[in-house]
Design a protein around this nucleic acid. Structure first.
Lengths: 199, 199
DNA sequence: CGTAGTATTGACTATCTTCAATGCCAGTGG
DNA sequence: CCACTGGCATTGAAGATAGTCAATACTACG
């Protein structure tokens, strides 16, 4: 349970190019703190926890889980390496969703509050805004009004476009995210497998 | 067709409090340019237009429309006064969606690129990030897996929570947004009207 | 080998979509 | 003033789709 409290400059990190690919980081000198690796099923944070800083995913996969009124849970998003966790409640005091690792996962906690100077702060904010807009908008229900098969196909293609790892989540989790029954996900994959290859 | 090219400081604008409510604007001195008012059906911009700056809605209602592969269209979001348009493609060269006024609409174009100093730039970026996160995340399909009636109820409540104007869009547009048939929207409203009041 | 979690399949049912028709209302032109 | 038109709302009936329930297969792991 020890925390790895190592301060790292993204400039010197081998994976930094994946985290800040838009040519922002090299000169920015973003500072992060490496977080203790998570095993599958572990929570990075839970809904209601105080929001302190966003996390940059460096490996693995994390689901954002929303607790429903009736006690059930829904998966709101999947995050893969290079994407930010916790930005959802940037202007909120506490986290609205829980972040649960789907596979073994590593991430870094951003040190965004300690702005050494305004220019660097602006650069970081610009990078965060870019991340936030690219992460949230494409997921703003691009698959409503599509059939179940088309929704699953769109989901798979979206995930493939974001990472090259094989789908790490269960059919039930995909169903929770897409808002359909686990069985329907299974049958959709069956149809896709009959049509194309590689699903 | 004349453009109103009036430069305005949000500090001196009566409606500024609605645009930047989080106590950011008063000292920031955000500059905007008032845009020619739009009539119902007019486009503020279209998918493929070059992205120059986001717009702040000051009155009316705008739909973000996505063109589908098969030629049909889907409504991706509705924007009401105090919300930003165009942030979806912050880091994109061109707009991905078209912005079409549903009712008579006014808006301001942000002058974000002319940063007089880094501190002010950081303040603006912080405000934009707050807007972006609060706008996009709650709409990240909070109503998948709900029944049609519940989806419509959630939609109405969400819209009501963002603005006090009556629903300006047609049943067909609601259906396009929620991914259901116009008739299903109508029947859902009927059920809601029988249950509660005011729908 | 037994267990637990996940994946898959089938049968039945509820819900939603589609198609078709009608009602309602504002704007327009004679 | 009134018929006509177009857009939107509403309703009904029939068919398609996805959800639910239940059972079975598969796989990793102790």
């Amino acid at each position: 349970m020890r925390s790895v409290r190592e301060e790292v400059d993204c400039d010197g990190c081998a994976a930094g190019r994946r985290c800040w690919p838009e040519g922002i980081a090299p000169a920015a000198g973003f500072m992060v703190r490496r977080v203790r690796p998570l095993t599958a099923g572990e929570f990075l944070f839970r809904a209601g926890d105080p929001f302190e800083a966003p996390f940059m995913l460096t490996s693995g996969c994390v689901s954002l889980v929303q607790a429903l009124d009736d006690g059930r849970e829904r998966i709101v998003a999947f995050r893969v390496p290079g994407e930010l966790l916790g930005l959802e409640c940037w202007n909120q005091p506490v986290h609205r969703y829980s972040a649960q690792a789907i596979t073994a996962t590593t991430c870094c906690r951003l040190r965004w509050s300690t702005a050494p100077n305004a220019a660097r702060s602006a650069t970081l904010l610009r990078a965060l805004l870019a991340k936030a807009t690219s992460q949230s908008m494409p997921s703003s229900m691009p698959w409503a009004s599509l059939s179940a098969v088309e929704r699953v196909r769109a989901f798979v293609e979206d995930f493939r476009s974001r990472t090259d790892q094989p789908l790490p989540m269960t059919r039930a989790q995909i169903g929770s995210y897409l808002g359909m029954a686990e069985e329907t996900v299974v049958r959709a994959f069956k149809v896709l497998a009959a049509t194309r290859t590689g699903y």
